[in-house]
Nucleic acid binder design. Structure first.
Lengths: 196, 196
DNA sequence: ACCTGAACACCGTTCAAGT
DNA sequence: ACCTGAACACCGTTCAAGT
């Protein structure tokens, strides 16, 4: 006599994503997820391979959502400067809206809990397009890495409440974007910035 | 009949710091630390308040060590440009030498496991001094945050093996330092860069 | 004064037994 | 075909009992 499913892989993932923000990664236990979808912990293994895989799926879904936000905020038609400002703002909005998911994406744990490289690569495409417009093909990857590193570092520190010396954090974030745009626009000759 | 100590708070911390690099934060269990210092786990509580406090002490010690390295690499007498290059290199060396400690410092977990704000503030003083020399007092904090965010983001990503699109990671790190130095030197008028 | 085994409240995961 | 309780191997932490 087959027993009908009382839940599903998608419902388990959705419950996990909600719990992640509500109680943090450490509180995302199989028992808590199970309680939320209305079964006992062992039943989850019929829908998901295990906790690490569940975390990885949540991370992957978050990266894809973030990628869509970046694409919308830094669209093909925008100037490179506007694209970088938009991308920075989209990253900050995501970090504030879903801080735990942001941490999962940008300060990942063990490999088994990470978003897929494909999803991650795809998500940063709009940034790469913008830096290509500013510094040229040859330096576009280096510039994209500089931008992504700055944004992820800044927002990780902001979420961790690591800015404890006063000042205006939002203004300092904008200072950072403008500094990078300036640097990419004034790329030194000899490095290929103007002449490549 | 008093029993003589078979270990000490310092020995416990040293064993914990070694274990952290060898087996990672998740492997840093009270039982593993106890085995290394030659007692059973419950005895550790005579020397350390608990696991979180032990992790916090390791993090604090790492921040202080890093602060000394920054002071040596970006000394008072150096030009701001050389100080920022030196600070960046010191951060990268530390990240490579003690990756787990670096992660502990720059992507901390719960508050109870963190380095003290005093130690953290003190560690970044050389960076603040360098940015002050480049952008002036008023923007020195914003510039220091931009630099620190970039470095911590870049190195966290490098340690997490998040740069999977090829390219030369070391060269891209140097690209980042030079870009920031350029941006800080060419601060736009009206923002106080040249005229403040 | 420190060390110990036993115990408690948790984890993730496996598995035989139910329906 | 899915759900369940029981069990296993782990955690951190507490505590009475040893020396």
């Amino acid at each position: 006599v087959p027993a009908p499913s009382r839940t599903s892989p998608d419902a388990v993932m959705a419950a996990g994503a909600d719990l992640l923000e509500e109680v943090g990664l450490a509180g995302l236990t199989m028992q808590a997820v199970a309680a939320r979808v209305g079964v006992r912990a062992p039943s989850l293994y019929k829908h998901v391979p295990g906790r690490d895989a569940l975390v990885a799926r949540i991370a992957d879904s978050a990266v894809r959502t973030l990628g869509e936000a970046l694409e919308a905020a830094a669209p093909e038609g925008a100037t490179p400067e506007e694209a970088l400002r938009g991308a920075a703002q989209a990253l900050r909005s995501f970090a504030h809206a879903r801080p735990a998911a942001f941490r999962l994406v940008f300060t990942p744990g063990p490999d088994a809990t990470r978003a897929s490289p494909e999803s991650s690569t795809r998500a940063v495409a709009p940034v790469l397009r913008a830096t290509r417009g500013l510094v040229g093909e040859r330096q576009s990857l280096a510039a994209a890495r500089t931008f992504t590193a700055w944004a992820s570092g800044f927002l990780s520190m902001e979420l961790a409440d690591a800015f404890r010396m006063g000042g205006d954090v939002e203004e300092d974030f904008r200072f950072g974007v403008e500094a990078l745009i300036r640097a990419f626009s004034h790329g030194g000759p000899g490095r290929g910035g103007w002449t490549a």
